[in-house]
Write a protein that binds this DNA or RNA. Structure first.
Lengths: 114, 114
DNA sequence: GTAAGCAGTTACCTAAAAGTAAGCAAGAAA
DNA sequence: TTTCTTGCTTACTTTTAGGTAACTGCTTAC
């Protein structure tokens, strides 16, 4: 008889954990925003973010690709060039990003910048 | 003349960063969910999460309090007891959490559990 | 022929996050 | 009276994220 003297809420926790596994971290959403704002080349993305370094960017891009959120395409022209684009699946993150933005904007007003 | 050969999107990035600073990490939202699901005592919260340890929980609770997302109240009865509750401000995170949940649920269906 | 841009990689380092295990003061229950 | 529960703290270790700097092969521009 497992007498669990607490409210169970694991069903609410699990999906949030899943989502955080994909998007949390310092750079993932930032990179997605950069790409969907029109930066498609490695160096473009790097410059648009500014403080990121190429090692971290390369790693994060790989992660995002594994999660099917971006697509890496190599154009075999001369010189070859590499393009990163967001996938249709990435657009499902739109609402998440919007809510985070709105909340972050308000939070800065309320707490940080007072 | 700073010739920035990339699209500028810093205004979209900043608020997202602010939000992530507060909510990213392994436990913050999980703890908020636990408290708002009815777990108000330290040990209750601990048990409801399961894998967290008291050192980490204590630290995260302090962080959440600093961010005005929860309130710690000490009731000076005998024995004294401590209660954690979410603040009205925490409810502004509701939409964020909802979107994360929905996305996480879908993500598990689409990517993880296939 | 030298410099500069592209898309990264490599080896190394640091700092922060998270975990482990134990303990403590108080009261309550056995 | 020993044990249990609560709400933590302390000291220590491990793990992970993130950062630095240099360097690669390739190509074009000067």
């Amino acid at each position: 008889m497992s007498k669990a003297n607490h409210t169970d809420c694991s069903s609410a926790m699990l999906p949030v954990r899943d989502a955080l596994d994909v998007i949390s971290g310092k750079w993932k959403l930032i990179i997605l925003i950069s790409i969907s704002s029109g930066n498609h080349r490695f160096r473009e993305i790097e410059r648009s973010i500014g403080k990121i370094n190429s090692k971290v960017l390369a790693k994060e891009l790989k992660d995002l690709e594994e999660h099917k959120l971006i697509k890496r395409t190599v154009y075999d022209e001369s010189p070859v060039f590499v393009e990163y684009t967001t996938t249709p699946y990435a657009t499902t993150l739109g609402k998440v990003i919007k809510e985070l933005r709105d909340w972050g904007l308000n939070h800065r007003k309320e707490i940080i910048g007072k």
